[in-house]
Design a protein around this nucleic acid. Structure first.
Lengths: 210, 210
DNA sequence: TGAACAAGCACATGTTTATGTGATTGGTAG
DNA sequence: CTACCAATCACATAAACATGTGCTTGTTCA
């Protein structure tokens, strides 16, 4: 028997979901609330397996609720429930340890399936959400890697710049004169199309050159 | 009718899958191959909707095949198929634009469902894979966020530093005197425990302060 | 009400960067 | 063989930065 809790501000939907879930074999709804104002105590008291959490709620919203719960409880499965597949919220929810993310328009049978999946350690997601997550993921981890044709020596200098070394320090670190350091850095600026140390450092991070 | 192509080295499994998919209403298998050596030409010739792609194949493997296909074709849906939910491969596949990732032990009915989901733009994933993806995602995007108690104004200055502005430019951008810019920057250096512009910029990136 | 602090401004001094011009050496590709 | 380029060094100058000291104003919090 999967023990479910419900956070949803719309009374009709809350009732509907409760009836659907509670009326299905293998599921029971322990309690339902219209916002997350006392979420910590409530979850502590009921010890559910899965929590269905609406995002948009007056008072403490779903993301805040999620954070509060995760601050004390890493085990309970939390399924975010929302009308929009809004990029920012999906991102925030995942970042804060949501186990799944489904749209409210999900058909009842599918929803029950999702709850089961969450309970058994899966990560149920509506197709559109899953697509978004994959997209975000590949964006985050894809850098065009222009390389800019930096020579080995130049990369070395850039690395030291990034580590906060002054020209003088770089010179002694690399056993060359400060004027040589200058030449290298000038070349680096040309190749990166920048004209200051901090821009070069910023570019090194942005383009993951090092 | 969803047009499917198959890349799978194991003859039994290849035949089994072909029979399953081709024998189901709404699906047709255009062709199947035992590796990706000529994947570009083959996909060009058949123009499938969905490609089932085994990862582990002799010759050109599934990840390589995926890359080759994506180099010329962004539309066709590619569903990775594997025995392991191996972290590295999942990561690589997603990075390179796979649409889904399912385990071979997936039951036939579920597999057909996944193919349909992929065809209609979804991102089908076996539960264990989805869980992994979420985990990776939250790892990648979780930084301790020390914050360092920067004031709003200080954050603003730091942002402009990162963007490569000089003190003078920051002053005119923020409508304050250059001396005030200096004060702010001094304070920022204290809070971040650094003592140069480039170190501050580097720290801003490392700690994702902005 | 009084301490703490963010935000603003001023002036001074020394260091570091940015930029220009120019030169030597050694390796490599045409 | 020669043209090209990375790596090295030198000298010079102006702009930008780092640091110190000191002052005013307004807000917030105990």
């Amino acid at each position: 028997m999967i023990k479910v809790m419900l956070y949803e501000d719309n009374p009709q939907l809350r009732e509907g979901l409760t009836m659907l879930i509670d009326g299905s074999d293998g599921f029971t709804v322990l309690a339902s609330y219209k916002n997350c104002d006392n979420v910590t105590d409530e979850v502590d008291a009921w010890k559910p397996d899965v929590i269905l959490m609406d995002i948009d709620m007056p008072g403490t919203n779903g993301i805040e609720g999620l954070k509060k719960i995760r601050a004390r409880n890493a085990d309970v499965k939390i399924l975010m429930l929302t009308v929009f597949d809004d990029n920012k919220n999906v991102f925030e929810a995942i970042r804060n340890g949501a186990n799944g993310y489904v749209l409210k328009k999900t058909p009842p049978a599918k929803l029950l399936e999702y709850i089961e999946e969450a309970a058994s350690g899966g990560a149920p997601m509506t197709a559109s959400i899953a697509t978004q997550v994959l997209k975000m993921f590949s964006q985050v981890n894809t850098s065009q890697n222009d390389d800019y044709n930096l020579s080995d020596r130049e990369k070395q200098v850039l690395q030291l710049l990034v580590d906060g070394y002054s020209y003088k320090m770089i010179a002694s670190e690399m056993f060359i004169s400060i004027d040589t350091v200058r030449s290298h850095i000038k070349k680096i600026y040309e190749k990166l199309h920048v004209n200051s140390k901090s821009e070069a450092v910023a570019k090194a991070f942005k383009d993951k050159l090092l």
